[in-house]
Nucleic acid binder design. Structure first.
Lengths: 247, 247
DNA sequence: AAAAATCTTTGATAAATATCAAGTGTAGGT
DNA sequence: ACCTACACTTGATATTTATCAAAGATTTTT
């Protein structure tokens, strides 16, 4: 047994229980009674640790499970034949990844941990089986997928209609909003991704991202020190992201 | 009873049967026996006609149903507070729209008919109920949503990484591929949308789209006459757009 | 602790696309 | 068939962002 396999066995042997999980409100539906909740625990087969820089799944790989992030931070990205890479999202605790694999039984993107992470492995057949039994879970799964569709719609708006500074403002506001929903600061954050990764997500080159950060800093809207960011004037950011008339 | 209501009543009274529908392979799962298939017919409540330029649903509207396109052609678009509009997709016969509404019980985009159209109205509660009964339908619904997520991933790649001509090449190839899957020509098509709508989808201005069309025409790759397009050299188009799968 | 590698910032210039403008073509309505 | 929208094309110019380059900061390795 190699070290990784041992690690996985240990992780699996620890009782994995959604009913006890402090992320429940984020990644599971509410409104269950205790009995149902215990049934629901069956949806999670094991937990899995993913070290920084490691892949949770990769494009082309057979699809078996979706994953709920317990701790850590991920990026998902697609790459073209000629090697161009597009970051399609950044995911944090309580969020679900792997839904891309359902349609073709193979994943179509890579999921890479940007910091040491742990995920709940939810075999999709379990999810479907329990969904047929629990309408609340079924509805929840549908909402999770719909949310992803809606999120991608707004990324399309961002990429198709906004200029560099608007994109970065929208990105920062979205990040702190999600972090805040997890009990973290509304104004301070440490970026888990590089300028290049931000640029890839926003359809910009890293230099352009860096310049936009510097500009916001000069204007006193934010305070930036490498990956540490403090939002001084959230209203100014919102204004940049909402109103600028582009083209 | 106003004329529209009468029209709807007539449409509903015509027996709506997926089991008889020639689009079944496109919009419904395969592998059902006749008995199940008849049960499945219940998923469709009515049909609805949507005239050119009319909205099937609009952003903010309460979500009740998803729609399978029987005939016609739609665009979906989101708009920002300051009025900028982003086309998020073009949909044709056999495709499903309205999935954006699930997450918040309200639609987050507009669906507009680009030509006279008819859709099958599938109340989402019906879909969910039958999904619990028929694992094949459940799996199909999940695949439809996953396909949309994967499609949007490719659009992100397109908007984030490609140049104008690559975007247009990818767009044209995708369109003819989908039309071909519906028994239409692999090389000829009549665009249902304006240059401006193409531009909105591709994150370009209409003039840029027009120039790219002209360039392809001059190079003999395509033949363009307003909205009529004939693809002369599909390989040349594929070479321009040599990224991976685009849905 | 020094060295190497990586990430970030900033400046100068180039390239791509938007904007403005004018003219042409096409479709729909009377 | 004519008139009037509206859609499309094309040219000239402006703007934005990419590219190239180099230096500074941070993290990792030795």
């Amino acid at each position: 047994m190699n070290p990784e396999a041992i690690q996985e066995t240990i992780a699996a042997s620890i009782k994995v229980a959604c009913s006890d999980c402090n992320l429940r409100e984020l990644c599971m539906p509410v409104g269950f009674n205790l009995e149902d909740m215990q049934k629901l625990d069956e949806v999670v087969a094991t937990r899995r640790r993913v070290g920084q820089g490691e892949m949770l799944f990769r494009s082309g790989e057979a699809f078996t499970s979706i994953y709920a992030i317990r701790t850590g931070f991920f990026k998902t990205c697609v790459s073209s034949e000629d090697g161009r890479e597009q970051v399609t999202g950044f995911q944090m605790a309580g969020e679900i990844i792997g839904l891309d694999g359902i349609v073709s039984d193979h994943h179509s993107c890579n999921a890479i941990a940007l910091e040491d992470a742990e995920v709940c492995v939810m075999p999709f057949s379990n999810v479907e089986e329990l969904s047929r039994e629990f309408p609340l879970l079924q509805r929840h799964v549908h909402k999770v997928m719909s949310r992803e569709i809606v999120r991608e719609n707004s990324v399309m708006m961002l990429l198709g209609n906004m200029r560099a500074e608007e994109r970065l403002a929208a990105f920062l506001l979205n990040l702190v909003q999600r972090l805040h929903a997890r009990g973290l600061s509304q104004s301070e954050l440490v970026l888990r991704m590089s300028r290049e990764e931000i640029g890839s997500y926003l359809g910009l080159k890293l230099e352009t991202v860096s310049r936009a950060f510097s500009k916001f800093g000069e204007e006193g809207i934010i305070e930036v020190k490498q990956r540490y960011v403090k939002i001084i004037e959230p209203e100014a950011l919102k204004k940049i992201f909402k109103s600028q008339s582009y083209y």
